[in-house]
């Protein structure tokens, strides 16, 4: 696993549910076909209401809806409470990862989303020790230091504490539950 992830921040609010991350009408595309799966990246976060897209200003698309584009300008998502609540659709962390997101930093997660991030090896789901939604702005240059459990906002110069990954760290380090089970001799 990378120990440091740096990129632009995309800030969302509380209770971002999986219908907002990838609305149900988009759950039909193949997740294995190299072309079709790009549509998940294209429509990542498309269900978030306009005013809540890219806080504090809002109205900032996560992925520009231009012809052929499926990649976001933002690599690190900052969320509030209960990130990823709702449906069990693995398409949610998958879509964020397809758009190029590498990590999510939230106050806490809905458990199935968290589990899908970890077991599928899509994103690193970190928990902050404080609310960051009001601290960090969409577009800030941020860095997740996984070894030191810190989030550094290079734009503002501030540093924030992250919680240890804990029990799931070996699975994240391995790159997902299959890789972990193979390393552990279970498969």
């Amino acid at each position: 696993m990378q120990t440091s992830i740096r990129g632009k921040a995309y800030v969302l609010g509380d209770d971002i549910d999986t219908d907002q991350i990838i609305p149900a009408e988009h759950l039909i595309y193949s997740m294995t076909d190299p072309e079709e799966r790009k549509l998940y990246g294209k429509y990542a976060n498309i269900g978030v209401p306009a005013g809540q897209r890219g806080l504090p200003d809002g109205n900032i698309p996560f992925v520009e809806q231009t012809e052929g584009n499926s990649v976001s300008d933002y690599q690190i998502i900052i969320g509030g409470k209960n990130f990823g609540c709702g449906s069990s659709r693995e398409h949610a962390p998958f879509a964020l990862a397809e758009a190029g997101a590498k990590a999510v930093i939230a106050e806490f997660y809905a458990r199935i989303f968290y589990r899908n991030c970890v077991n599928g090896g899509f994103l690193v789901p970190c928990e902050a020790t404080q609310r960051l939604v009001d601290e960090i702005s969409t577009g800030d240059d941020v860095e997740v230091d996984l070894a030191a459990c810190k989030l550094i906002d290079h734009t503002t110069g501030k540093t924030y504490d992250l919680k240890e990954l804990g029990d799931v760290k070996p699975i994240i380090d391995a790159g997902g539950v299959f890789a972990y089970a193979k390393q552990a001799g279970m498969l």
Partner: peptide, 9 residues
């Protein structure tokens, strides 16, 4: 409920 990866496992 579980995701696809868990179910595949």
């Amino acid at each position: 409920g579980v995701g696809n990866t868990d179910a595949a496992f």
